[in-house]
């Protein structure tokens, strides 16, 4: 495999006495759509949150091109080219879609209080440049007709798209999507999946996503990492994962590690 764009090694996260992530390691290849899946409580979102600096690591590291992301303050993550969405959607209700998308541009711009208050040329110039990017991203995601609407009035599907669009406006190299199709029906999921693929082409992204929707994952991803109870139980292509008895058992409730050990002693 070529040099991975993102490398997670030995990631361990504890909440009090509970081990949420236990020695999780995987690598994300550039330009791939890489999915993290697993039964409920497997630690998928925890993994995302740990990678983006929301939880302190008990052990392990997150690397991007030789730099340790886990040593950075969490607001520096986006500056390294990693933009994420949140499962719960953090959208200020009263802002318009356009404003929300502009938030994605925040880390690329510098106009401060004074420049904005007085509408100095620097602020106006940045605004113009931002608006162009906002418009083009909105177009790709089908949000253009809604740019002037307050986010609060939009239906759920469009709000999810807004969340993703905001991340794209940040011009990331890696896009982290936290359950992008949660709450959507088949048609919507499929459409969004296509959209994600298009974005990957258009923006030359690497996409890392956490998902429950198996169909989307199998159709969309190039590589899958499976978690159960905070541990990696499989890390392979979608086809291999589909046929892996350990993975199947995990989803049906058996303990994957136990199963592996049993299989090893038997054969």
């Amino acid at each position: 495999m070529t040099e991975p764009v993102l490398e997670v090694e030995g990631l361990t996260v504890r909440f009090g006495g509970v081990v949420a992530l236990d020695d999780v390691s995987f690598a994300v290849a550039p330009g791939r759509i890489h999915a993290i899946i697993g039964p409920n409580g497997a630690g998928k979102s925890t993994c995302f949150n740990a990678m983006t600096g929301l939880y302190p690591l008990a052990a392990g590291s997150v690397r991007m091109a030789d730099e340790r992301l886990d040593l950075l303050h969490r607001r520096r993550i986006i500056g390294r080219g990693i933009a994420r969405t949140f499962q719960n959607l953090v959208l200020p209700e009263s802002l318009t879609v356009a404003d929300v998308l502009r938030l994605g541009r925040h880390h690329r711009t510098r106009a401060g209080l004074l420049a904005t208050a007085l509408r100095l040329p620097r602020a106006r110039g940045e605004r113009r440049a931002d608006d162009q990017i906002v418009r083009s991203v909105a177009e790709i995601l089908g949000l253009e007709p809604h740019l002037a609407d307050p986010v609060g009035v939009l239906p759920y599907g469009l709000r999810k798209k807004t969340e993703i669009a905001r991340a794209l406006c940040a011009e990331p190299t890696v896009l982290l999507l936290d359950e992008p199709v949660a709450g959507m029906n088949d048609a919507e999921s499929h459409a969004l999946g296509e959209c994600i693929r298009e974005c990957r082409e258009q923006y030359e992204l690497t996409v890392l996503l956490v998902e429950h929707d198996m169909e989307l994952v199998m159709n969309l991803s190039d590589h899958v990492t499976v978690l159960q109870s905070g541990r990696v139980i499989a890390d392979a292509s979608p086809q291999q994962i589909q046929q892996d008895p350990v993975v199947i058992a995990a989803y049906l409730g058996a303990d994957a590690v136990e199963m592996r050990e049993e299989a090893a002693t038997r054969g």
């Binding site: 983006t52 600096g53 929301l54 303050h73 969490r74 607001r75 520096r76 993550i77 986006i78 500056g79 933009a83 994420r84 949140f86 953090v90 959208l91 200020p92 209700e93 009263s94 802002l95 404003d99 938030l103 994605g104 925040h106 880390h107 905001r166 940040a170």
Partner: peptide
């Protein structure tokens, strides 16, 4: 407005 909505979300966008 983002900070008011979610400090974590704001940090994820690079907002100090």
């Amino acid at each position: 407005a983002m900070v008011k909505e979610s400090e974590i979300g704001a940090s994820a966008l690079g907002i100090d």
